[in-house]
Amino acid sequence: MNARLLAAATGSWLVLWLPPIRHTLESDMVLHMAVQVPLLIMLGVLVAVVARDREPRWLADADWLGIPGIVAVVLGTSFWMLPRALDQAVSDPWADLIKFLSLPLLVGVPLGLSWRRMPPLGRAFIWANFIPKLGAIGGLYLGAPTRLCAYYRLDQQELAGWTLIAIAVALGMTWFFAAFVGWTPSCAKQSPRRSGGFLIAAVGGN
């Protein structure tokens, strides 16, 4: 079972790397930022879920309250939101390979491992940081007078800005709605360990 999931993750990674698929996803700013990057992170999360039992003891101990792990996630995602980094990934296959390795391994895996170690307040705080950051970057893309990425057109950039804002608003509303009706997935309440429910559990804010 675990081996199969791992194989599926690796297989999906290779599919995403296939030049036609890779170039299609990178030909458009929205696809690049809102589809390819999240998919790569998800693959890492999947790996973390599968390999969780093999996590070395020292790492689990050192990752107190999930803080170092989540810091890695925040810094890693910030890096790949830089227009310059996106440009390099599009123009240079080596940079793209770094992206393909760092997003799953340095962002996805820490996310999968650390999230369940975080206390509810910490999770809520991360959401409360992520949502405005996404919105702010969207706003900056809209307001930039010129193209930020040499490889993307202005209209793509504008669309990407609106997409980020829309995602931020949607996330914020989902979060609020979930907290309002008190919707917490049962898997999150009992044992986030067994399922991949931590991603959804996060939305419940507790």
Partner: peptide
């Protein structure tokens, strides 16, 4: 909700401060 909105504006203002070519409506 108010703080989330405020945070977004603060981030934008900070970026605008250091990279003035980033503007905002």
């Amino acid at each position: 909700l108010g703080i989330l909105v405020g945070a977004a504006v603060l981030i934008i203002s900070l970026v605008n401060l250091y990279v003035p070519s980033f503007t905002f409506n």
